[in-house]
Computed example of a mutant assay.
Amino acid sequence: MKLGLQLGYWGAAPPANAPELVAAAEECGFDAVFTAEAWGSDAFTPLAWWGSATRRVRLGTSVVQMSARTPAACAMHALTLDHLSGGRFVLGLGVSGPQVVEGWYGQPFAKPLARTREYVSVLRQVLAREAPVVNDGPHYPLPYQGPGALGLGKPLRPITHPLRADLPIWLGAEGPKNVSLAAEIADGWLAIYYAPRLAGMYDEWLDEGLAKAGRKREDFEVAATCQVVVTDDPVAVRGFLKPFVALYIGGMGAPGMNFHAEVFTRMGYGEVVADVGKLYQAGRKDEAAQVVPDELVREISIVGNAEEVRAEVARWEAAGVTQLLVGCRDTDSIKAVAEACQ
């Protein structure tokens, strides 16, 4: 099982100890370091800044939001970071949700699957650099010929030669169609709130996409965000995690269109989702966290002593996960997780 350090996105200020965490992850044998973005800090800049001190780990985004940049602009970021890191960059993408896409970026959210397919197609063209980049699709037309166009747009190839045409592209996806699309057009799936119990369901989605592309499962990565904590007090740790779960169920999506909440509903926690959503929307966040059951947290995290963690990691690996993206707050936690997963 490979390990990735998930640094996430910033809160009110940058994390003070990120350089130490990145250094510890590389020293302890982690495979990769990932950054994210929401509606504050971006993902590329911290990755370049902190990643400049690394020599071995892969550097990835988990995830950058597609509506924040045109596909050509995103490809420029990717090929630049891939050169600077010596071919260690992994581009993780996600569609986000309508509240962020329409409320923050001022872009339409409709047809996310079609937009994703077009976006990745343009990225692949830029990275291949075989011909000037063109796209006839309605979402990212190149050259642009819509309202306000001067008609002078010219298809272009990137001036800079990409280091790798096969730079890995991973997609953050939660629903069956999105996961299947990731297996069809991407090189990996960034899974959030993965549950090994449902591996058979995920495999059906993945196999459908892989079959369309004529690809094999061994050529595809499944990176699951998972809190891995080595502790002798698992009850307390799970209690600490519940407010974050409640946030994603009740506060990280629009009522009636919350993709995170749908994940837990598919897991069989529909009543919990409804109760947490009502409490969260009413501003009763502490009560919402208390509604989250221990069993739900147990399914999506790995918490226990070193022996228990090691056994659980093996179970997740058997379920098809190739990498765990873990969020560690200090270097001791990184060392403990690395030792338990060896």
Rank of each mutant, 00 (worst) to 15 (best):
L241Y: 05
E174V: 13
D330A: 11
P196K: 06
P147K: 13
L156K: 15
A73D: 10
D42E: 13
E312N: 14
K216G: 10
M267I: 09
I169L: 10
Q227V: 13
S85W: 00
V276C: 05
T35W: 01
K177F: 08
A338D: 03
P255A: 13
V326I: 14
R164M: 10
G239W: 02
P196T: 10
N17A: 12
D136N: 09
V237A: 04
G87F: 04
G146C: 07
D275K: 14
D275S: 14
W50Y: 11
K177L: 13
A314N: 12
V222K: 04
Y140T: 08
D136H: 12
P158C: 08
V272K: 07
M257E: 11
R88N: 00
P46W: 00
Q281H: 14
G250D: 05
K212W: 11
Q145N: 12
A306L: 06
N135W: 04
Y194W: 14
E20P: 06
E218P: 04
M76R: 06
D203C: 09
D136K: 11
F244K: 12
E299V: 10
V33D: 01
P147M: 05
A261E: 10
T35S: 04
I334P: 00
E221K: 09
A68K: 09
T61A: 02
V134R: 15
L190R: 00
V229P: 01
A211P: 03
E20V: 07
D286A: 11
A38P: 07
R215A: 15
G283P: 05
L210G: 08
